[in-house]
Computed example of a mutant assay.
Amino acid sequence: MQRIYEPENLMEGELLQGMLASEGVEAHLTGRDLLGGVGELPVFGLLGLSVDNDQAERARQLIAAYNAALPISGDEPDTFPDVLVC
């Protein structure tokens, strides 16, 4: 197993774990249970995504592509219903 990425928060970690699973890469999110100790533990480096050695390079490529992605312009609606613009 190799630790390939340190997500900024639990939501990003779970999102990337699901994205990797959809691409056939089994990833393990470590440190999830340590988040309750924030204040007693260091803030950074608690979470990590780990994959098998033979899938590490593929997983790194997928995460790099995810981090480099930009939103598609022109996809935003002209108005947002039920949103008050002040």
Rank of each mutant, 00 (worst) to 15 (best):
V85Q: 12
R3T: 07
A65P: 06
N53L: 12
E40Q: 12
D33Y: 05
P81Q: 07
D82H: 12
A21N: 13
P81M: 07
E6A: 08
P71T: 02
T30E: 11
D82L: 10
V85S: 09
R58A: 04
M11T: 14
A56N: 05
A64N: 06
M1F: 11
D82I: 11
L34S: 07
T30L: 06
V83Y: 13
N9L: 02
G36I: 05
A69F: 11
V83A: 13
D52C: 15
A68M: 07
A64I: 02
D82T: 10
V85D: 09
S22I: 03
I63T: 00
N53D: 13
E26Y: 06
V51H: 00
L62I: 10
D54Q: 12
G13Y: 00
L10C: 00
P71G: 03
L10I: 03
G37R: 15
C86H: 13
P81G: 07
R58C: 00
L35Y: 00
G36D: 07
D82K: 12
T79H: 13
G45L: 04
E76M: 09
C86P: 14
F80Q: 13
F44D: 13
L84E: 15
G48C: 08
H28S: 14
E14S: 02
V51L: 00
S22K: 12
G74Q: 05
Y66V: 05
E23F: 15
E40K: 12
E76L: 08
